[in-house]
Structures are given as C-alpha cells and as structure tokens.
C-alpha cells in the first residue's frame, strides 16, 4: 500500500527553533528517508513553503475568488509530506515513529490513486535549496 505521511506543526514554533535544532530535525528526516530510499519505496519527499506564500481559490455564486493564505486557519499547518510504500499500516506507523514528533502531528493516509506525473525537468526529479 502507498501511504501519504502528512506533517503538521505550528509554523511559529518551527520558526522559533535555533539553527542547531533545525539541523537535528533535518537529520531525523534524512534518517526516516534512508530505508524507503534504499528499498525503492520512496514515492515523494515534499517540503512546503510557509503558509504565507499560499493562496486559496474558492468557488462562489458570482465568481471564483483568490484568497491569501492557506485553505483553513488552523493552529497547526501542513508543512510537508512523504509518499512511502509500506506492507501494512503497522509498518507505516513504525516507520513514521522515526520522524520528530515532540510537537505537532503526523497523519498517515493511504493513497487511493498515484501517478508520478509528466515532468519536463525529469531525472533526477529534485528541486531543492542549494
């Protein structure tokens, strides 16, 4: 089964972390990625920009509107997600326990349909900060 691993936390708290703590957090993410990567069970690694960069389109009776900010104002925000292949929910839960979980929440949601897409900047499919 392909699972999405949706990472939620409070942006302002993440923002208050020191550089060392950010690094420690990143190390745990890299550790999380190791096994799925080796076993070729890593579908996607996605880190989102802060919610302040988002706009939300809403349908309305007269015309669609483009609103600033994320879809919902919540205490915790979606910060990023993974797609990983796991043999069972239990295995997914065990795998996700490698992620930093001191605050926030990680939602594991099975994927109903997935298509890798058709992406002109293909191989290797990586967009990152230097």
């Amino acid at each position: 089964m392909l699972y999405s691993v949706l990472i939620y936390d409070t942006e302002s708290v993440i923002d208050a972390l020191s550089e060392e703590e950010h690094k420690a957090r990143l190390d745990r993410h890299l550790h999380f990625q190791d096994d799925p990567r080796d076993q070729q069970e890593l579908g996607a690694v996605v880190k989102l920009m802060p919610t302040t960069t988002a706009v939300t389109l809403r349908g309305g009776p007269i015309e669609d509107t483009v609103l600033d900010g994320p879809f919902a104002e919540t205490k915790e925000q979606l910060l990023g997600f993974y797609l990983i292949e796991c043999p069972s929910l239990e295995a997914a839960v065990q795998q996700v326990k490698k992620l930093p979980l001191e605050t926030g929440a990680v939602e594991i949601r099975p994927v109903a349909y997935f298509e890798g897409g058709n992406f002109k900047n293909g191989s290797p499919l990586v967009i990152s900060d230097p």
């Binding site: 708290v13 208050a16 020191s18 001191e102």
Partner: peptide
C-alpha cells in the same frame, strides 16, 4: 521544544 514553544 518547550523553549521554542514558549518563544513562539
């Protein structure tokens, strides 16, 4: 994390 939570 506690201190980050408090400063946030």
């Amino acid at each position: 994390w506690l201190s980050a939570t408090l400063s946030a």
